[in-house]
Design a protein around this nucleic acid. Structure first.
Lengths: 146, 146
DNA sequence: AATATAGTCTATAGAACTAATAGACTATAT
DNA sequence: ATATAGTCTATTAGTTCTATAGACTATATT
């Protein structure tokens, strides 16, 4: 399971992507419209800013806005930023690699091979899931519903 | 990430699968050969017994052994047993479904659709990963290494 | 310059979960 | 009878997750 932090981050980012190039949006507005605890959202948006994904403006007319374009931001990046590795085993991660203590031979470990495949598939799907792509899917689903 | 419980469970099950139909194996032997804390392993094996995957025999010559055949036991089952849902979002699980409070319309949620695809791919791969399959892969990797 | 607006930073805290251990108890083979 | 081996209940230390409080800093506007 992804953490609430990631879930809130994605929801906020999709919201900001919908308002891309329309100027800064208040934390309060995002919190209210997306039903996210405001104080919690503050730390999340701050993290996204430090990661170079968002930017902010203080004072009247301020708020947060997307620094990167919506098709540059994907879910693999967001999950890694808050929750760390995407893989299900530490010995199968790119960026957070850790050897299993109880492992006899990593090279010939059948368990590892399975989890490597899972990671590859998952990362591929999550990388393809950019903010633009999510919005595109939403419109499609809405059309379908009518 | 899967929990240590799942990791230990898989390792123990693969060990028992290698010794399938060779009679019961001591908790102590599994703990030692696989470097798993014995007391912790006890609770894990007990859970696997209650789930109908293992059986045990008490007294001298006792121990644990596979009740199901190694090609009937797959990693999706084991992960669900100990860690719960495989999906990354509660609104995308089969058995542990929970609606997102902040969700406006589940039917048209683009985020949900992405995570549904991830779940489908993951479950498919994990279901194919039976104990037999893992052992088969190990032999292949060993041959390749030589 | 004053003031309201709005993001920033540091600290903290309760709840839940994880990993592991202790120890008394029960069942079985010989 | 006795040694062997699994069973059950409780507990604990540590960590992570989710969220909140409150003081502080920067900016736009008048």
């Amino acid at each position: 399971m992804i953490s609430k932090k990631v879930k809130y981050a994605i929801i906020a980012l999709v919201k900001l992507a919908r308002e891309y190039n329309k100027g800064p949006i208040l934390i309060r507005d995002i919190a209210e419209s997306e039903k996210i605890p405001q104080k919690f959202l503050e730390t999340i948006l701050s993290d996204l800013k430090h990661a170079g994904i968002l930017a902010s403006k203080k004072g009247k007319g301020g708020g947060y806005y997307l620094l990167k374009s919506p098709d540059e931001v994907n879910l693999a990046t967001i999950i890694r930023l808050f929750d760390g590795a995407i893989a299900l085993l530490p010995c199968v991660t790119y960026q957070y690699y850790e050897r299993c203590e109880e492992c006899k031979d990593e090279e010939t470990c059948g368990i590892r091979e399975v989890f490597k495949e899972v990671r590859d598939e998952t990362v591929e799907l999550l990388k393809a899931a950019t903010l633009s792509e999510i919005i595109r899917r939403e419109s499609k689903l809405e059309k379908k519903k009518r």
